[in-house]
């Protein structure tokens, strides 16, 4: 499915919480459940054979709203990695800020992943952040991009706020030079 937008990932009516927890149960709410709350049998995440920690999606994943609740919902539902051939910008930042790794692969490789899953829903795909590789059981492999700063953050569990707080002196200096009141 292409262009999966953040209103599908987590509909606006579920954004009323004031904490970051519990959004997982409403992940893909309207695709997962009927209006009466019963699960839709034909939706992939309702089928336990497709259970896993890597979410695989087609082009332009996470487009639309800036709601970080989308990343929180995916993480809360037990995923650590999202694989697509193309991510929307804001979603990508939100994911990284929540230690959810967005892995961008080529269209061809994405097609191979889908084929492998179709053949065997229990297939195991390996994502190695340090080596920046994603590997299929048949040995097929692709490398993915991530900027060095973010990679270091993810591997060491730092976040941007820790870094920004550490350079507050530089920021105050910048304000002085630029006469920002």
């Amino acid at each position: 499915m292409e262009n999966v937008d953040t209103d599908q990932i987590i509909p606006a009516r579920f954004l009323k919480a004031t904490s970051r927890d519990g959004f997982g149960e409403n992940l893909f709410r309207d695709w997962r459940y009927n209006a009466d709350g019963s699960p839709k049998k034909d939706f992939v995440l309702n089928d336990p054979t497709y259970k896993g920690r890597i979410l695989v999606a087609a082009k332009n994943f996470g487009c639309g709203s800036s709601r970080e609740h989308a990343a929180w919902a995916i993480k809360d539902a037990g995923f650590d990695v999202v694989v697509s051939s193309f991510f929307a910008d804001i979603f990508k930042n939100n994911a990284l800020n929540n230690f959810l790794l967005p892995v961008t692969v080529s269209d061809e490789f994405l097609a191979r992943i889908f084929a492998a899953i179709k053949k065997d829903p229990a297939t195991s795909i390996a994502v190695d952040l340090a080596a920046q590789t994603i590997t299929l059981p048949d040995g097929g492999q692709e490398t993915f991009e991530i900027n060095n700063y973010k990679k270091t953050c993810l591997l060491n569990g730092y976040d941007d706020i820790d870094y920004l707080l550490s350079i507050r002196g530089d920021i105050e200096n910048f304000e002085k030079i630029n006469e920002i009141a």
Binding site: S66, H69, A71, I90, N93, N97, I161, L164, L165
Partner: peptide, 13 residues
């Protein structure tokens, strides 16, 4: 537009 972690960053710094 930014996400909530970024809202926190801007509030902090």
């Amino acid at each position: 537009g930014i996400g909530t972690s970024e809202v926190e960053m801007v509030m902090a710094t």
